[in-house]
Design a protein around this nucleic acid. Structure first.
Lengths: 221, 221
DNA sequence: GTCGCCCGTTCAGGCCACTGTCAGGTAACG
DNA sequence: CGTTACCTGACAGTGGCCTGAACGGGCGAC
């Protein structure tokens, strides 16, 4: 499952990210509404964890705007406000659940798992790119109906491309997906993984843009 | 929004292209299924306007092939056939809407706008100069709807022109874009790249100002 | 522990598109 | 007309890219 975490407190954000990550979900963590809006434009999430007090506005604004566009992504609100009025307001605005800080990480896991269960029950929101079919939640991939196995690093790279078909990703962006932010990599690791992905996904699945980066081909290979 | 127009009739094609263009969308116009397939391969569209009777095949073939690959791009069919059977066949094949020729351009605008409302925006702003269309973020360029590939050096030069369309750039300024600041260049490299750009962008895309420099032509070529 | 396996990373060799140069031709200007 | 500036096809060198192969570490099986 793919989760968007909107939380400006660094310590809590890290803790939540790591927990969800350990539970086997893909987490994108942003620290402001501005970035959150960009993220939902470019990626489809199965769940959004939303803090209310953010540097550039109130979470409710984001929530309402999202619902106004018809987006029905489940949203769990994370906030210090435990007043009943806020809770009602949140649920009215379209939130699906509510977690009051400080909360236990295991409780968070449970709520997320509940969403995941509901989500699994629904018809699969499979992403299809050309002859590939991707289940982001289960980390499963098939090509022309044949299952394809990817290693962890290969997934990390591949997910980057899936954010938006056809998007150009620079070498640096791809490295950021594989390693800690800002990590410098000497060798041609990216090239090697591109090569391995091509071997598994089809030779033309990934297009080289010389001296720029790579982009995922959004049609048949 | 980025629109692919597949229409072989020149007059109608121009009219539709201009209308959509005026509505603020980026239009790629192709006149055959063959070119349409190429375009779809290299670009992600938010909407496809599809004529049915085309020189190299029937629009339904393209439509079905596209849907078979999992591509869910909204498609509006434009055709003279107003029979109910065709309409049903089109919608069954995966079309989203249907416009019967001759149609009013304002009706077309309205249908396109409806798709635009549904669509969640492409974060990359498109720059349009004459018949050129540039996606600076993704380093993509098309001319009259045909994708154009530029090398790294060519991009560097081209970007220089784009920053101030119509302004005169001296040879020295252009050299600064290609090389380290202040680097002296002996040969006529700039001229060569101007020539290469003209070959790709159109002979009149770049205007020579004798003994002064060059400027980008900001209207059609 | 120790063996075997798989994954991540690095390296080296080869390929080919891009680059920069030049030379001969063309257009502008007096 | 001559002179100057510019255009462009051709070409060799090079650097970016691809990929098979090998190394080493982590982890599970036993």
């Amino acid at each position: 499952m793919r989760v968007l975490l909107v939380e400006d407190t660094t310590g809590l954000g890290e803790a939540v990210r790591d927990q969800i990550s350990e539970d086997g979900h893909a987490v994108d963590w942003v620290q402001s509404l501005c970035f959150a809006e960009t993220s939902v434009k470019t990626t489809t999430y199965n769940l959004i964890l939303l803090d209310l007090m953010l540097p550039d506005g109130h979470g409710f604004d984001f929530l309402k705007k999202l619902r106004a566009t018809g987006d029905a992504t489940p949203i769990i609100i994370l906030t210090a406000k435990d007043q009943v009025s806020d809770r009602i307001a949140g649920l009215n605005a379209g939130a699906d659940d509510y977690l009051v800080k400080p909360f236990d990480l295991s409780e968070l896991s449970a709520r997320v798992a509940a969403v995941a269960r509901r989500y699994r029950g629904n018809p699969n929101p499979l992403v299809r790119i050309g002859d590939l079919e991707v289940d982001l939640g289960d980390h499963r991939l098939s090509r022309n109906g044949q299952p394809v196995e990817l290693t962890a690093r290969e997934w990390a790279l591949f997910e980057g491309f899936l954010q938006r078909p056809g998007i150009l990703l620079s070498r640096a962006q791809l490295e950021d997906r594989l390693y800690e932010f800002g990590a410098e990599i000497e060798s041609n690791t990216i090239e090697v993984y591109i090569s391995r992905l091509r071997k598994k996904l089809g030779r033309d699945a990934i297009v080289t843009v010389r001296s720029m980066g790579y982009r995922l081909n959004s049609y048949d290979h």
